[in-house]
Structures are given as structure tokens and as C-alpha cells.
Design a protein around this nucleic acid. Structure first.
Length: 272
DNA sequence: CGCATTTCCTGGAGGC
DNA sequence: TGCCTCCAGGAAATGC
């Protein structure tokens, strides 16, 4: 399940391989995963060059010439890969964007279809409707901004998962960061006063940076653009370790439901 | 408006 | 082996 580190890994690879390349064709196999400008994608983007590849929270933004952006969201099971044109097309491949023969084909595959691509031809629509409701990037967040976010009675886990408050964390990195800071996931956010709030922000940033360095966590679906797995799952302290001993204190890791999500934590290192 | 709950979807796991 | 049920979860939609 791609969160910020997985998406950042994908963006870096796409940037290296696609910047300044020319789109030659586009094929939509499933129209209902494509949103935004309703005109046929092939006619719309063929001939344009890739100007930039960037990330906002968990979204991948491919900017083409003449003010057109393709915004990919991978949802749960989405993958973006670059394949040779004649590679077999995997099941649930919904969109293919062809580049030159020596580059290959960008393929968007998403079995569960929680993801999609937004074709944005107007900057206003892009900022206002799609990305306007996203909170700040956690890696760019200062202590003051974080304290403002914490001014709520909600459980800290629910708050960190709320993309309109802070954008990019998902279930894995929320659990890992809370463990690293020694904070129980059900703690009311406004109970986190200094120095704990600062510790938590540092834990969030450190967890994300380490995960990016390991090219993300592969549990099931996630792969990098060239099909490799990430390796951060080997450094997980709580996520997916239910019943196994805490690496700090030896107590068994527990799994509970918080904010409707399965939540792993150490009852001894993260007391309420 | 803010926040909690429900809903979408498929593949894989586990029970029998 | 085959069939069934359950579960994973990002975020939009819905319901207070």
C-alpha cells in the first residue's frame, strides 16, 4: 500500500526516466479510472513532452508541456511501471502511455481500483478541487504548524491519517512513527504537549526518511517502477509484527482497531 | 464546519 | 481441489 515513501521512490525513478521524453500514444483500457478532462487521452497528450515529475502527498504529478498534468493516485493496489512495448500486459492494466521504443510504456495497473488518474488541463481545477484539501507535507512541517494540528481531542492515530490535516502518512508509517515516539495511538492529540509533540514530529520525519532510503515497504503489491521490491518492511518495529516481541522491551506487539484501521503497537513502550 | 461511519474493489488466506 | 467467507485499506460520500 503506497504511502509517502513508496510514492517518493516511484517519483524519483519516473523523473529520471521520463523527463524531456515525448509521449507518443495513450491507451485507456478502463475509462472509469480516468477523471478530469473528458476528451480522448491519446489525442490530448500525444506529442507533448514530460516537463517535470513531482509528488504531493501520495499523489504523483506528471507535468506535460502546454499546461497539462496527469495526477496518479495509487490507492491500495496501484502500480506504475515502465515496460517494453512488447512485454505481456498484466491483468488490470487500465492505462498505458507509450514513449519512444528505447524508453518503453508507462503502465498503470490497479486491481482494486481505489486509485486513478486525473487529467488536469486547468491550473485552477488542479489546485482547488484536487489538491487544495491536502494538509502540509510532513517532511516540510515545522514544530509550530504541528502543534496547531494537534489542537484537537481526536485520537492521534486518526489525526495523522487525516490527509486534510497532514498529508502523506498511511497506516504503516503512522504506526511506526507512534512507536518510535513512544505514543499510544489512542492518545488524545491535545494531550501531546512538549517535549512529546516535538518527539513525535521528529519520529515522523525520521521514519519517512529512513523508509525512502530503503525505497519503501513491500508487503504485497508495491513495486518500484522497474519492478523491484522495497526493503523497509525489514525495519518495521510494530506493523505486521502482532504477537512478536517488541525489539526494545520484549513485550508482545498488540493489534487493536483505532479509527477503523488495524493498529499495531507495543503496550509497554506506548502506554496510554 | 467537524468528525465518525460507510462504502467502493479484488486477491489472497483460511476454514471445511 | 473447490467453494465460501473474511480481510486488507485510501479517501470520497454520507450522516449526524
Amino acid at each position: 500500500m503506497p504511502e509517502l515513501p513508496e510514492v517518493e521512490t516511484i517519483v524519483r525513478e519516473l523523473r529520471t526516466r521520463l523527463t524531456r521524453r515525448r509521449v507518443e500514444s495513450a491507451t485507456v483500457e478502463r475509462a472509469d479510472v480516468v477523471h478530469g478532462d473528458p476528451r480522448p487521452l491519446d489525442a490530448l497528450i500525444a506529442g507533448r513532452l514530460v516537463k517535470t515529475v513531482d509528488r504531493r502527498a501520495k499523489r504523483i504529478i506528471i507535468e506535460l508541456t502546454r499546461n497539462l498534468r496527469l495526477v496518479f493516485h495509487l490507492g491500495m493496489s496501484g502500480r506504475l511501471t515502465i515496460d517494453d512495448h512488447d512485454n505481456p500486459i498484466a491483468k488490470h492494466t487500465h492505462v498505458r502511455i507509450g514513449f519512444g521504443r528505447e524508453i518503453g510504456e508507462l503502465r498503470f495497473r490497479d486491481p482494486r481500483r481505489f486509485g486513478g488518474v486525473w487529467v488536469l488541463t486547468d491550473a485552477g481545477e488542479y489546485v482547488g478541487k484536487r489538491l487544495g484539501r491536502l494538509g502540509p507535507e510532513p517532511l516540510e512541517l515545522a514544530a509550530k504548524g504541528f502543534r496547531r494540528i494537534l489542537a484537537s481531542r481526536r485520537q492521534i492515530k486518526a489525526l495523522l491519517l487525516d490527509q486534510s490535516k497532514i498529508a502523506g502518512l498511511g497506516n504503516i508509517y503512522t504506526d511506526e512513527a507512534l512507536y518510535a515516539a513512544g505514543v499510544h495511538p489512542m492518545t488524545p492529540a491535545d494531550a501531546l504537549v512538549e517535549p512529546i509533540a516535538g518527539q513525535l514530529l521528529r519520529a515522523i520525519k525520521q521514519t519517512l526518511r529512513r523508509a525512502i532510503r530503503a525505497r519503501g515497504s513491500t508487503l504485497m503489491d508495491y513495486r518500484t517502477v522497474d519492478g523491484q521490491t522495497g526493503s523497509f518492511q525489514r525495519q518495521h518495529r510494530v506493523y505486521g509484527r502482532t504477537g512478536q516481541p517488541c525489539r526494545k522491551c520484549g513485550a508482545p506487539i498488540e493489534r487493536i482497531i483505532v479509527a477503523g484501521r488495524s493498529t499495531c503497537f507495543c503496550p509497554r513502550c506506548q502506554p496510554l
